[in-house]
Design a binder for these strands. Structure first.
Length: 431
RNA sequence: GGAGGAGUGGCCGAGUGGUUUAAGGCGGCGGUCUUGAAAACCGUUGAGCUGCAAGGCUCCGGGGGUUCGAAUCCCUCCUCCUCCGCCA
């Protein structure tokens, strides 16, 4: 959510500040009307409450003095009825008011490029050379099936489309990647590992911005307000929901491995082959809580931490800054990391690293107690950030496609071999 | 799943209808003392909304109710704790 006083003081500029973003333009004008009416009615009802409180105190005084208070009680009762009527109106206004506020997307950082869709994104850097092959590199869905380590058909039988069974070396590689990534982030990059619940409640999903707008993308557990977590961002960011943190606790850096579950309504027909777009996938997530003035630098650091994983694995990638129109609802600035996939002759997203500013912190009430220049304590909203470090399934895909040989074998990156019991390559089964 | 108990400010904790504008403690901040620190002592310190301001309103797990007046009484939901049952 955006700050209410910011909306007021920048009201005229809001259409410009929110250009290329998706929201109900008419709701802005309505917000202005409701803001004025709300303040008018609230002022009136509070004056009446103040009078009633004074009367009640007088009743108390008279009763203790054994005097008659019937007149005050009568007047207070009448006031109470009027207060109740006005309060009902305040509730109506606030309901509509809040509905508008919580549906407004975050305002992009000034450094974010203009643009309506992914064609407006800007490549900032590239790392590594896409390998040259003296044979036609295969996509992972062919390689993996031929190696007998990816099984799409049985997954469809067991569950349905967009699920995959990893077996043998693929399963080992997946487990190795999770351990490798967590070790890198905890030992070298300064993150604390957490293993959160994989099921989250509606309040947590509101806090990070998935609800109420994007319920269709989630799996909900029948007859509950519990959902399968679409990303560890949700449980980990919400660890500190409704908390006032101590200044010296910041910055906080967490990393977490979790499976992620996405219903992905509306993605039918996209990436239907292979394990690029699945209903269930594994991810190691990086989450940071910082003071407001530190979040920009923290965003660069977090993105570098994710890039290091790709560099250690020798996977060519590029960093892209998303334009205004392609960013997520809650984000102020997003870098995507795209890994090179020779089997598809394309760069594909493998990590998304975002700075949310105070947008999530306002929704989730995550604050920090700070001491001002005047020596007085005040609560400020923290800034929240997160990024994939990395998506495990897509990293597995990248290894299979980048490290394939002409004979259909796949080499294991050096950095990963200790996590695979020394295994150096995957070969086709003899039979 | 069954029975009982409990949710109060950053934390602990008192408070069972009207000076609660929430006692007291811890922690934080400022000061006295000190070469410096610690200790001790003194002062100060919740959040949100509204108002130009003075001020006002709301908040004691969430929601609803009774009352002139609710942290306190009633209903309901949630969470935690203890014991029992079950279970990886």
């Amino acid at each position: 959510m955006l700050a209410r006083d910011f909306l007021r003081t920048h009201f005229a500029e809001l259409p410009h500040l929110l250009r290329n973003r998706t929201y109900d333009v008419a709701s802005l004008a309505r917000w202005g009307e409701l803001d004025a009416e709300r303040r008018r009615v609230v002022t009136a009802v509070e004056a009446m409450k103040a009078e009633r409180n004074t009367l009640s105190a007088e009743v108390g005084r008279k009763k203790r003095a054994k005097e008659d208070a019937a007149a005050e009680m009568e007047r207070a009762k009448t006031l109470g009825v009027e207060v109740a009527a006005l309060e009902k109106r305040v509730e109506e206004i606030e309901g509509e008011f809040f509905a508008i506020e919580q549906a407004l997307p975050n305002i992009p950082d000034e450094s974010v490029p203009d643009g309506a869709d992914e064609t407006g994104n800007v490549v900032l850097k590239s790392w590594g050379e896409p390998g040259t092959f003296d044979f036609a590199p295969k996509p992972h869905w062919e390689l993996g099936v031929e190696l007998g380590i990816l099984d799409f058909e049985r997954a469809a039988k067991v569950t349905g489309a967009r699920f995959t069974v990893l077996s043998g070396e693929a399963s080992l590689l997946s487990r190795a990647l999770i351990a490798f990534m967590l070790d890198l982030h905890t030992r070298e990059n300064g993150y604390r590992e957490v293993l959160p619940p994989f099921i989250v409640n509606a309040a947590s999903l509101f806090g990070t911005g998935q609800l109420p707008k994007f319920e269709a993308d989630l799996f909900r557990l029948k007859d509950t307000d519990w959902y399968l977590a679409p990303t560890a961002e949700v449980p980990v960011t919400n660890l500190h929901r409704d908390e006032v943190l101590k200044d010296e606790q910041l910055p906080i850096s967490y990393c977490a491995y979790t499976p992620c579950f996405r219903a992905e309504a509306g993605s039918a027909g996209k990436d239907t082959r292979g394990l690029i777009r699945q209903h269930q996938f594994d991810k190691v997530e990086l989450v940071k809580f910082t003071r407001a003035e530190e979040s920009e630098a923290a965003h660069e650091k977090l993105t570098r931490d994710a890039e290091k994983v790709l560099e250690r694995l020798g996977l060519p990638y590029r960093r892209v800054v998303l334009c205004r129109g392609d960013m997520g609802f809650s984000s102020a600035k997003t870098y995507d990391l795209e890994v090179w996939l020779p089997g598809q002759n394309a760069y594909r997203e493998i990590s998304s690293c975002s700075n949310f500013g105070a947008f999530q912190a306002r929704r989730a009430a995550i604050r920090v107690k700070r001491t001002g220049a005047d020596g007085k304590g005040r609560n400020e909203y923290v800034h929240t950030l997160n990024g994939s470090g990395l998506a495990v399934g897509r990293t597995l895909v990248a290894i299979l496609e980048n490290y394939q040989g002409a004979d259909g074998s796949v080499a294991i990156p050096k950095a990963l071999q200790p996590y695979c019991g020394g295994l150096s390559e995957i070969r086709r089964p003899a039979c």
